[in-house]
């Protein structure tokens, strides 16, 4: 078994209202120095060792992310 991590974030040009809400809450916490927050999604997949990268890429590109509005990054975590 291997662990594959897929991170999905909105493309930079797409407005992120949830990230903005978090920025708004930061100021109420009294935290300064954080100028922007972008919220994304983090997927952890337990996969067979022999599963190839192209299958994971296809999964990320068709289901986990919507490439119209989101970018994704894939990495294999050493067990």
């Amino acid at each position: 078994m291997a662990r594959v991590v897929v991170d999905v974030v909105l493309k930079p040009e797409i407005l992120d209202p949830q990230g903005q809400a978090i920025v708004g809450a930061l100021t109420r916490l009294g935290i300064t120095g954080i100028n922007d927050v972008r919220q994304g999604k983090h997927f952890e997949l337990e996969v067979d060792d022999e599963l190839d990268d192209s299958t994971v890429t296809r999964l990320a590109d068709t289901l986990l992310a919507n490439p119209v509005i989101e970018n994704f990054a894939i990495r294999r975590d050493p067990a």
């Binding site: 797409i14 407005l15 209202p17 903005q20 809400a21 119209v68």
Partner: peptide, 11 residues
């Protein structure tokens, strides 16, 4: 259809 729908800008 092209494009996508995202959270309302006013949240």
């Amino acid at each position: 259809l092209p494009g996508a729908l995202i959270r309302n800008d006013h949240r």
